[in-house]
């Protein structure tokens, strides 16, 4: 099964990096959609279905925490697993985001192998 992934990060370079890591890791990805903040991501999700969301926290307009809160309030969108990908790896932030319902937390910097492992864990879909 090929998955549809939404990458939410205000840095176009980081979005491109994550997309490239997903592509070269061999992860079965049918589409990588992108958004620059939570507001844009909700707009994308209004038109497209995705299997997994990767989101940064520190973003303008609507940050990652506000975005996750909006997802959790939506009966349809709350079922999509969310992986936070953030520079903030303080215990307080990680526990707070996990308590909000996100399924994983990946601190930057990360290796391609770590990202792939997290994607597979969240989707419970091991790949060769």
């Amino acid at each position: 099964m090929a998955y549809r992934v939404l990458i939410v990060d205000d840095s176009p370079a980081m979005r491109a990096f994550i997309r490239r890591v997903i592509e070269v890791s061999g992860f079965d990805c049918a589409a990588c959609l992108e958004a620059g903040n939570g507001e844009e991501a909700l707009s994308v999700l209004g038109q497209e279905w995705v299997d997994l969301i990767l989101t940064d926290i520190n973003m303008p307009s609507m940050d990652g925490e506000q975005f996750v809160r909006r997802l959790e309030q939506d009966e349809c969108l709350r079922s999509i697993p969310v992986l936070v990908v953030s520079t903030d790896s303080t215990n307080r932030r990680i526990h707070h985001m996990l308590s909000m319902g996100v399924k994983g937390y990946l601190a930057k910097p990360f290796t391609p192998e770590t990202l792939r492992g997290e994607l597979e864990r969240l989707l419970e879909a091991p790949h060769a």
């Binding site: 953030s86 520079t87 903030d88 307080r92 932030r93 601190a107 930057k108």
Partner: peptide, 18 residues
Amino acid sequence: NVVCGAVLSRLESDSSFE
């Protein structure tokens, strides 16, 4: 952004920063 976040996460691991 990434290096700063990594530094502060170690420097302030039990608090939070923005």
